[in-house]
């Protein structure tokens, strides 16, 4: 049955496709770039939402995974571009400018990082969890700033976007297509995950730990798994984001980035599958429109955010469809 929410979801995901296509036909490449940015940030939000909405883990450190994904792209591409081998043992590896390989590396490394951070952080809960994830994010941030081999605070610049077999990634619409397809796949995956036995157990652990333990599952393992999946998806988004800008820097790791990814999720509606899509799109539009109105546009952003948190708790989707389904 089509609920109002799923109708709205279809409308949003279609709009995210139609807007850049229209821009393409009108030769407005920058609109396509904006839509690509929205799709990629939405992907990061989809990742965070698995931890946040489904698992109830308020991570203020997801910038760590976003940044690791970004640096996976930056480091591989920088070596490929300068013909300096990344390592020569056990086999010669010269880096790569192939997106699929870069994505794989980004996903693996951000998942590994999420595993380590998760094992350590999930021993705590509540505010301690928020703060320890923040601390791990800051740790990586300061590390990246002083890691001079890869540019330190200056970051790494890649002159040409990496390649995807059969496509010209420098063409904005083709790069948008890549980001869009990955976002759709991630949404399908997240939806299946939520309905799977794993997802149901995770949601149950969020609401009542004892019940989950009573049926023989350990909430810690459930949460850790979700946290790793969440980190991996956000890492993939980081690799795409770095490719969008052809640039990666420690800014991607800062706690403001963590806050912003969280804002996408909240603006759209926590625990709603398409919340990050709505949130990221809204955020990009606000930034684009308000930024032109006033130098002090962040005041308005802050006010709007405050109003949403205080008075529209379901976020944008909640406001549009009402409270028919709080967590999905």
């Amino acid at each position: 049955m089509l609920t109002r929410e799923s109708l709205l979801n279809w409308a949003m995901i279609t709009a995210l496709l139609i807007v850049p296509l229209a821009a393409w036909s009108l030769d407005e490449p920058f609109i396509i770039t904006l839509a690509t940015k929205a799709a990629i940030l939405a992907l990061a939000g989809v990742g965070l939402n698995i931890a946040l909405g489904l698992g109830g883990m308020i991570s203020l450190g997801h910038a760590a995974f976003f940044g690791i994904g970004g640096y996976a792209m930056g480091i591989l591409a920088a070596h490929a571009q300068n013909y300096e081998p990344l390592f020569e043992w056990p086999f010669l590896f010269e880096g790569s400018n192939q997106m699929p390989l870069i994505w794989l590396v980004a996903v693996v490394f951000s998942a590994l990082a999420a595993l380590v951070i998760g094992v350590l952080s999930l021993r705590t809960s509540g505010v301690y969890f928020i703060m320890i994830t923040l601390a791990f994010g800051q740790m990586l941030y300061y590390f990246a700033i002083s890691w001079s081999a890869y540019g330190g605070e200056d970051g790494l610049s890649i002159w040409v976007r990496n390649e995807f077999p059969g496509l010209n990634t420098l063409d904005p619409i083709q790069f948008f297509a890549i980001a869009y397809v990955i976002l759709c796949l991630a949404l399908v995956f997240a939806a299946r995950l939520a309905r799977s036995p794993f997802g149901l157990a995770l949601a149950a652990a969020r609401q009542n730990e004892d019940r989950v333990e009573a049926v023989g599952l350990t909430p810690f393992t459930l949460r850790l798994t979700a946290f790793v999946i969440s980190g991996a998806i956000t890492g993939l988004a980081g690799a795409l984001f770095a490719d969008l800008n052809r640039f990666v820097s420690p800014t991607m790791l800062s706690w403001h980035t963590s806050g912003e990814i969280m804002i996408f999720v909240i603006l759209g509606g926590v625990g709603r599958l398409y919340g990050p899509v709505a949130g990221a799109a809204l955020y990009i539009m606000l930034e684009h429109l308000l930024g032109g109105v006033s130098d002090y546009w962040q005041i308005f952003l802050g006010l709007l955010l405050l109003l949403i948190v205080l008075f529209a708790r379901g976020g944008l989707i909640g406001a549009l469809v009402g409270r028919e389904k709080a967590h999905g």
Partner: peptide
């Protein structure tokens, strides 16, 4: 003062 914002503004100024 954000590198990614600067890149996007540059893209817009050049492309649009």
């Amino acid at each position: 003062r954000k590198p990614d914002a600067a890149v996007q503004i540059a893209d817009r100024m050049i492309q649009s």
